[in-house]
Structures are given as structure tokens and as C-alpha cells.
Amino acid sequence: MTSPTDESPVCSARGCREPAAWALLWNNPRLHDAARRKTWLACPEHRATLGDFLDARGFLREVAAAPGSPTLDT
């Protein structure tokens, strides 16, 4: 297991402390304005499960590299 620095974004999955590589941008159209985006961060291991959870509810809008992640450099 890797150890993120204090400045590193951390995965939003319950109990995960891995560095986040992805930002899952979402909103609940019943509660949020169409332009509003909330963000869940995901490590590579949890990108699919968090994305599937949001997508199944019709909330997922975009998946992008998380700011400060090594994904931006590859």
C-alpha cells in the first residue's frame, strides 16, 4: 500500500487511503442545478466501482484526471 502525502488527494471510497488519480464529476438532477458538479476522487482500483455506482443512478457526468495526480503526466 502506498502512503499519500498530506497534499495528495485521497480516494473517496470508504476506508481507502490511496492517492486519487481520477475525479468523478457528478450531480443529482433532482437536487442540483444542471451546471453544478460535485466531485468524488478515485484511485485506479476504485475508479470503476465508484463510477458504476454513480452511473447506475444517472448521476455521473464526467471522469477526468484528478488535479495533482500522476495521471495528468501520462
Rank of each mutant, 00 (worst) to 15 (best):
T74M: 13
T5D: 12
N27V: 00
V10G: 03
R30N: 05
P9N: 06
L50R: 06
W22I: 00
A13S: 07
C11R: 01
E7L: 12
P70G: 09
A56H: 10
D33S: 07
S12V: 02
A66Q: 15
L50N: 07
T39N: 10
L24W: 04
C11I: 00
T5L: 12
L41S: 09
P4I: 10
P29F: 04
R36S: 06
V63T: 15
P29E: 06
T74V: 14
H46F: 09
A21K: 04
L72G: 08
R47K: 15
L72K: 14
R17E: 02
T2A: 15
C11D: 03
M1L: 14
F59N: 08
C43T: 08
V10P: 01
K38F: 09
L60Q: 12
H46V: 11
A48E: 15
R36P: 00
A20F: 00
M1F: 14
C43H: 11
H32Q: 04
W40C: 07
D73S: 14
L24M: 05
P44L: 03
W26Q: 02
A13G: 01
T71E: 15
V10E: 01
T49R: 15
A21V: 00
S69C: 10
D52K: 13
N28D: 12
P70I: 03
E7V: 08
V10K: 07
S12G: 11
R30C: 01
W40G: 03
A64V: 14
N28F: 01
R61V: 13
S8F: 05
G15S: 04
P44H: 04
R17C: 00
L25V: 00
C43L: 09
D52E: 14
R30P: 00
R17I: 00
A64R: 15
E62R: 15
R36H: 08
S8Q: 14
A42M: 11
P9L: 13
W22Y: 12
A66T: 09
S8V: 03
D33E: 10
G51N: 08
A65N: 13
V63I: 15
N28H: 02
A64L: 13
G51P: 10
M1D: 14
N28V: 09
V63M: 14
R37C: 00
H46M: 10
H46T: 09
N27R: 10
L24N: 05
P19H: 01
P4S: 12
G15A: 03
E18M: 05
K38R: 12
A65E: 12
A42R: 08
S12P: 03
C16D: 01
T71V: 13
E7K: 12
A34R: 05
L31K: 11
